[in-house]
Nucleic acid binder design. Structure first.
Lengths: 182, 182
DNA sequence: ACAGCCATGTAACTCGTTACATGATTAC
DNA sequence: GTAATCATGTAACGAGTTACATGGCTGT
């Protein structure tokens, strides 16, 4: 019967991907996991979206829910794994960055003196906090992150994120040093 | 006459900010400028959105259009500059990254061998191309980028973007080296 | 008993996109 | 003359958000 191969947004594949790591999840747990890990290099969808996305994936036959309506656990199906493999093979979109501190810096000529310094130091603090969160995630993968183990690819991505945060910190400090001193 | 201080999305301020650099622009030119510069750290809005955004900004009194309907040029108003200053002073949102290559890497366990290498080398090429585009923008600012000159802040942002691309390139290569060799 | 977390959804809305339409001007 | 670029929009749509509603379970 017809494959009903409608296009799905990337976030659908992201959630589908989370279901391939570890075991079956409820919608609630999936939302938690997305927030804990995926938010560092993709957006973490709103709670309501996780549920509607799961329904759509179930309609498409890419996940299967089992158990009572409350506490129902979702598993990726063979068709889901197939769809995921096809998505991986497609050319990757170029990353989209929405960098509000940089945007503010661009119009910094209109800021009061000192405002940019404040903004950048606050940003550096946020980056350090995010980096610490991600470092904790990365630490939890240690011991199972060899090339033939389950957390190999997730740990590659976590390291990527850590490098991004390190780069952001370095640039922020370099930029602070280039601003007119108070 | 109440201030009609409705919230605006960040993209509105981004476009408003572009109008403070250089001279008045038509919608068409604004779209070009956004694509040439802003896309590196914010999304470049679709053409149609630029026009509707300009209409909204005009309704709010933040920009003023003058001239015939065709070729009309928009200037930021005093109220617009005020709104921009207030926006700069607000706490900056944490950057949002939608990193499709990293997302694919996360589920790399389901990819055919070699697929990840292909994806990452293709990504590195894209990054190099984007970096070259941005480097050209940066070069055009040289000579007017001292702290008291017009392109000081834009050049800070351009350098930020170049550092981001350099970091991405380095991480991509490091990740390639960690993948099982073919 | 009450707070907080677990768990699932609906409704309304905004942002931003693609596809399309239209026509003028410029380059070759 | 015809292709490309300049220039401005409308319409339909989709993704994703916030606000809200509902109720069970758990710890204190």
């Amino acid at each position: 019967m017809g494959a009903m191969r409608q296009e799905l947004p990337v976030t659908s594949y992201a959630l589908l991907g989370l279901l391939t790591l570890g075991d079956d999840l409820t919608g609630y747990e999936l939302k938690q996991r997305a927030h804990a890990t995926m938010r560092f290099y993709w957006v973490a969808p709103a709670t309501s979206q996780v549920y509607s996305e799961l329904q759509r994936l179930a309609e498409r036959g890419l996940v299967r829910g089992s158990g009572p309506a409350r506490g129902r656990r979702y598993t990726i199906t063979d068709a889901g794994e197939q769809a995921l493999r096809e998505w991986i093979a497609r050319p990757a979109e170029f990353p989209v960055l929405k960098h509000s501190p940089a945007l503010r810096l661009m119009v910094g000529a209109h800021a009061e003196p000192g405002q940019l310094r404040e903004m950048l130091t606050a940003y550096a603090d946020q980056v350090r906090a995010a980096r610490a969160d991600l470092a904790a995630v990365r630490a939890s993968l240690v011991g199972n992150d060899a090339p033939d183990q389950a957390w190999f690819h997730p740990s590659l991505v976590a390291d990527w994120g850590l490098a991004f945060f390190d780069s952001e910190l370095a640039v922020t400090e370099r930029t602070l040093a280039r601003l007119p001193q108070p």
